[in-house]
Design a protein around this nucleic acid. Structure first.
Length: 249
DNA sequence: AACAGCTACAACCGCAGACTT
DNA sequence: CAAGTCTGCGGTTGTAGCTGT
């Protein structure tokens, strides 16, 4: 649905220019993250105040006066800020731990990219989504599947290799040794959430391909306590049982 | 050097839920 | 309560850059 505000102005699409980036960044720097539609309007040249501001700013930062101003939708501004301009965003490749965490969280939550992104500070949902689609999903689709990915990480796992017939159901509590500080008897049941083929009430449905089991195995690695491949820092910060409980909510 | 195929990423679109009037 | 509007999310697409032939 296009908003009235968006209809009022000619909305630009496509790649953002550095001038647009500068305008948006500077506006947010001055006024903070207001309502996006209002922001889009106010940051644009349509606002008389912003004409003056823009002219001043262009002069100040020595931009050419031919700049066309910001004619973007609120949505577009929000996306540009959240996925690119926000200074909190981490640049560079995902670390091994981040990649592993994405795998784990995806196995728990499915395509809940924004929720997964919350657990990866500095990473955006769009980035994680792109990572998953381009690098993980492609591998899943290939004959080698996730299994190859897990071996690629070369991480020891304390879990016994679980070979479960396709379509069968296992009880998680029988498969995973949880750390001693685990206090909630239902926590691991709650870690298994509402994604399509995922777990409910402590049981895990094995999909046809067996990839689900592998994904689950990856997901469960971090919950097996000392000696696990995952670094203690991550275990402490991300996988404490209290949090595991929260994940299911 | 030219081309095709692939990869990574930015950006758009449509939808649903939240919020406001 | 209903209609209108806004916001955020997930899916999808377009494209620039890279790599192999």
């Amino acid at each position: 649905m296009s908003t009235l505000i968006e209809e009022e102005i000619e909305v630009r699409k496509g790649p953002w220019t550095t001038e647009e980036d500068t305008l948006l960044t500077h506006y947010i720097g001055r006024h903070g993250l207001g309502p996006w539609n209002m922001l889009a309007k106010c940051a644009g040249i349509n606002s008389l105040i912003n004409i003056l501001f823009t002219l001043f700013f262009m002069f100040w930062v020595d931009l050419p006066l031919t700049s066309s101003g910001l004619k973007r939708s609120g949505k577009s501004c929000r996306l540009r800020w959240l996925n690119y301009l926000n200074p909190d965003i981490k640049r560079g490749n995902l670390t091994l731990q981040e990649q592993q965490l994405i795998l784990q969280l995806h196995s728990l939550w499915g395509n809940r990219w924004s929720k997964i992104a919350e657990r990866l500070p500095g990473r955006t949902d769009n980035e994680i989504k792109n990572y998953w689609r381009t690098r993980v999903q492609n591998k899943q689709q290939s004959s080698s599947s996730l299994k190859e990915m897990s071996s690629q990480f070369s991480v020891p796992c304390q879990l016994p290799e679980c070979i479960v017939p396709s379509g069968s159901v296992i009880n998680i509590s029988e498969q995973i040794e949880f750390p001693q500080h685990e206090t909630s008897p239902n926590a691991h049941a709650r870690t298994c959430v509402d994604n399509n083929n995922l777990v409910l009430n402590g049981s895990y449905n094995i999909g046809r391909s067996g990839q689900d089991m592998e994904a689950f195995r990856l997901a469960s690695m971090s919950a097996v306590g000392e000696g696990c491949w995952i670094c203690n820092e991550m275990t402490d910060s991300l996988w404490q049982c209290r949090e595991l409980g929260e994940m299911g909510n």
